[in-house]
């Protein structure tokens, strides 16, 4: 059973036990426009909450993706290197950015559920 949580910076996290899968929301991709490049963190990197973890670039601009919580990167989505446009077509499914081992579960308390995120972007 996974739970999906959201940040005010438009990242989503799917929580499955000790591991969180992180991506950007469909709302975020619609604001960015056509994604042409994604830079992912290295596996093994230890991320602090709110640290710039990845970069997503459209034709016009580069945007940081922040670590929504603290933890170590355990896997990255290599498919995004070959096909950055997946971020536009499948932001909340196939276009996950990285998986991280959750360092402190109490940090999850500060995140939004789907209803709260919908209200945030309304």
């Amino acid at each position: 059973m996974t739970t999906t949580l959201y940040t005010s910076d438009h990242e989503w996290l799917a929580i499955d036990g000790d591991v969180a899968t992180v991506g950007i929301t469909d709302y975020a991709q619609s604001q960015l426009g056509d994604v042409v490049f994604v830079e992912l963190p290295k596996v093994g990197r230890s991320l602090k909450k709110a640290e710039a973890a990845a970069v997503v670039e459209s034709v016009k601009a580069a945007s940081d993706v922040y670590a929504p919580i603290s933890g170590e990167v355990v896997e990255t989505n290599d498919a995004l290197a070959a096909e950055p446009a997946l971020v536009n077509s499948d932001a909340q499914t196939k276009a996950w950015f990285f998986k991280m081992k959750i360092a402190d579960k109490s940090e999850l308390g500060g995140l939004m559920d789907e209803a709260a995120y919908k209200a945030h972007t309304a």
């Binding site: 426009g33 056509d34 042409v36 459209s58 034709v59 016009k60």
Partner: peptide, 11 residues
């Protein structure tokens, strides 16, 4: 800056 088609398609 763009229309609904987006920068890539417009280009």
């Amino acid at each position: 800056v763009q229309y609904p088609a987006g920068v890539l398609k417009e280009h």
